[in-house]
């Protein structure tokens, strides 16, 4: 009955030197194993003594998973590449400035120095009931504490809630979806490549996971095709504090225009559902339309169709509407002093 926090219980630690070793460990210990990348999500769980893996597989020594490489006209980013290394990489800066912005918007400098892109996209939700050890659906229980008449759910989902109303907190995830990134997943039984959009899963599919990764799976790399290199990017994150905080909502879009007409675009949001949301309907409606206030307005309105606000997160509707609007037409006006 007694609950104790802040002291990690014992676990066995492995620090494999390469992917093969890591995979064989994961295969050997399956659901007893906990994969640790930068560790910033992991330590919370471990220190809170809520998750108690027998074995931690720390990927710190797997150097082959680090680094950004050119791959055709796109990029391949090792899953263990830190956000700082990503932000500082000339190819990222040159071709996919939006990813830089998104990575730079995450957490704090020290966290970006240690946190990895793989960890950032695979992190667990930050629902404060779940993270505090309340035994909700996501924790194997039969209740969502965040959607009750008295629940505090300012940060929670407006879309695709299925029992659980938690949201995905990643800043890089919507950017990767907009850029049509591919996630390279390996296990002892082989390699699998998943569109970034489909890497994330909602509670309807599996209420205890945020991604398609199953025990034994390892995200090894993220490939960004050259398709959208150098196109028009928009990324914006709205949050409380300018450091540390996860997004209330963020938006990422890539766009190609020609003579004021939107030729093609991809648009994704996060902080609104348990998975980042790609706005396919909006994309379809906006394609071929002139890039102007009217189109932006329409896109914004379409984006919130079907949204179901909770007691404290109704603001996410106007926020999403405005962010999508801005993703289409940009930000208006500024002060010089």
């Amino acid at each position: 009955m007694a609950v104790i926090r802040d002291v990690m219980p014992a676990f066995e630690l492995f620090q494999p030197a390469n992917v093969e070793e890591a995979l064989s460990l994961l295969n050997r210990y399956k659901s007893d194993a906990w994969v640790m990348a930068g560790g910033l999500d992991s330590f919370d769980w471990l220190k809170d003594r809520i998750k108690r893996p027998k074995v931690v597989v720390d990927l710190v020594g797997v150097k082959e998973l680090e680094g950004v490489r050119a791959s055709g006209d796109g990029l391949e980013i090792g899953a263990m590449t830190t956000l700082t290394d990503l932000v500082r990489h000339p190819l990222v800066r040159e071709k996919f400035g939006m990813l830089l912005e998104a990575a730079e918007a995450a957490a704090s400098p020290q966290i970006r120095n240690q946190g990895t892109i793989g960890g950032n996209v695979s992190q667990d939700t930050r629902c404060w009931y779940y993270r505090d050890g309340w035994e909700c659906y996501r924790a194997g229980g039969n209740i969502c504490y965040a959607d009750t008449p008295t629940a505090m759910n300012r940060e929670h989902a407006i879309f695709d809630a299925d029992r659980c109303v938690a949201v995905n907190p990643s800043d890089t995830a919507p950017a990767l979806i907009a850029l049509d990134a591919k996630m390279v997943i390996r296990s002892t039984s082989g390699e699998q490549i998943v569109d970034a959009e489909h890497y994330f899963i909602g509670p309807g599919i599996d209420i205890t996971r945020m991604t398609v990764l199953k025990p034994g799976d390892l995200l090894v790399a993220i490939r960004i095709p050259g398709t959208w290199a150098g196109s028009q990017f928009y990324f914006e994150k709205v949050r409380d504090r300018k450091v540390w905080d996860f997004p209330l909502v963020n938006v990422a879009s890539v766009m190609k225009t020609s003579g004021g007409t939107i030729q093609d675009l991809r648009l994704a949001l996060n902080g609104v559902a348990a998975h980042p949301v790609r706005l396919r309907a909006v994309e379809a409606a906006v394609r071929g339309k002139p890039r102007n206030e009217q189109t932006a307005e329409m896109a914004g309105l379409m984006a919130i169709e079907g949204a179901k606000p909770l007691r404290h997160n109704g603001y996410k509707l106007p926020l999403v509407r405005n962010l999508v609007k801005r993703a289409i037409r940009g930000v208006e006006g500024s002060w010089t002093s």
Partner: peptide, 27 residues
């Protein structure tokens, strides 16, 4: 804070600032 939320434990590891509360010594 012991939770990478305050920075008081910042040290340099290979010249890069890290929260020493949130990295395993073995790493």
């Amino acid at each position: 804070c012991d939770r990478s939320e305050c920075g008081a434990c910042t040290v340099l590891i290979d010249d890069v600032p890290h929260y020493s509360c949130s990295i395993l010594t073995h790493s």
